[in-house]
């Protein structure tokens, strides 16, 4: 479904620093891990925004912040015009109803001592206004049907299901309150490839059916390309590039995105040798002590003096038709990757 221009979530300058302390009795803050450091974007109704980046770049912290499982150091997230971190009591609970999460690991995200009926029905216990008490069992069975599970298995325990089926239970739980936004924190990373496809297609089908907005966090570039309308690339706590999936996958302008895409294996042996691979040197710097200026400069093949002095803003530039956080952003036609 084509995304409409109405923003559901507006994320502005979101910052999360985890303090590093020293001393046992008198704790002294000696620094901070800058897990998320100034992230801003909008999520539109009915769209899927993919967030990609390597391990430790702050993707999962971002998901936790959006779910208010962690409170940010600074910044705001507006849902329907209200800052979700300032909501209290009833309004906060109403916001919970509309923003839901699907977690990464289907083996730890379901309480092993609850039956499927309890797990999928729990949202109704917490928000009793959604479903009258006598109606809940039928609702749970409907939800199981929606995600492609046998509604007769309502009395089973999670360990009696396979990984893919468990992830469907998690999805059913996320759908129960009929949210508008679902944050998917690597929902398919723990599944094998054939099951990944089933779950991805299920998510797409549900999006069409219920007009959901997804924030789809993943490290698998081809999965994101398949499902996302827009893609944001994250590096060391901040966004380096954001655009439609075509802009990011076919005309990336940030050197990090280009390097990332050049690492995707090409399934076609014919063009394999002709492709230029960008090899990055070194490791990701510590988020407790990120480099000055551009955070990517220590590993960048384009780095110049300017990069150490000035922080490149995420904006449209002469060399980049979509926002890119690089002083020397330009389209580099290296990347003819995945299933084009």
């Amino acid at each position: 479904m084509a995304p409409t221009a109405e923003a559901v979530l507006e994320i502005r300058d979101l910052v999360k620093h985890f303090p590093l302390t020293q001393g046992i009795v008198f704790k002294k803050q000696v620094g901070a891990v800058k897990a998320v450091d100034g992230v801003s974007f909008d999520l539109y109704r009915g769209e899927t925004l993919g967030v990609v980046g390597e391990s430790g770049c702050g993707k999962s912290t971002l998901a936790k912040l959006l779910m208010v499982l962690e409170r940010p150091t600074a910044g705001s997230v507006h849902y329907k015009g209200q800052d979700i971190y300032k909501l209290r009591g009833k309004d906060f609970k109403a916001m919970r109803r509309n923003v839901q999460i699907i977690l990464q690991d289907p083996y730890t995200s379901l309480n092993p001592r609850m039956t499927v009926a309890d797990i999928v029905g729990e949202p109704f216990d917490i928000h009793p206004e959604v479903a009258p008490k006598g109606d809940r069992r039928r609702k749970v069975q409907e939800l199981l049907e929606v995600v492609g599970l046998n509604p007769e298995h309502i009395n089973r325990y999670p360990h009696q299901f396979s990984g893919g089926q468990r992830q469907r239970i998690g999805i059913a739980r996320g759908l129960a309150l009929r949210p508008e936004v679902i944050i998917c924190d690597e929902p398919v990373s723990a599944l094998d490839v054939s099951v990944q496809a089933q779950v991805i297609n299920l998510l797409e089908g549900l999006q069409n059916e219920f007009n959901l907005s997804y924030i789809f966090i993943a490290h698998d570039l081809s999965v994101v390309r398949h499902i996302a309308d827009r893609v944001a690339v994250m590096y060391l706590g901040s966004l380096v590039e954001i655009g439609t999936d075509q802009q990011i996958y076919e005309t990336p302008t940030h050197p990090y995105t280009q390097a990332l895409l050049s690492a995707v294996p090409v399934p076609n042996p014919v063009g394999r040798g002709e492709r230029e691979r960008i090899l990055l040197s070194g490791d990701v710097p510590s988020p407790a002590d990120p480099p000055s200026g551009c955070r990517f400069r220590t590993r960048c093949f384009k780095a110049a003096d300017k990069c150490a002095r000035e922080v490149p803003l995420l904006e449209v530039r002469p060399g980049s038709p979509h926002p890119s956080a690089c002083h020397f952003a330009e389209i580099k036609p290296v990347v003819d990757t995945v299933d084009a």
Partner: peptide, 8 residues
Amino acid sequence: SAARALGA
């Protein structure tokens, strides 16, 4: 975490 995200 999932329960907390539901508002428990």
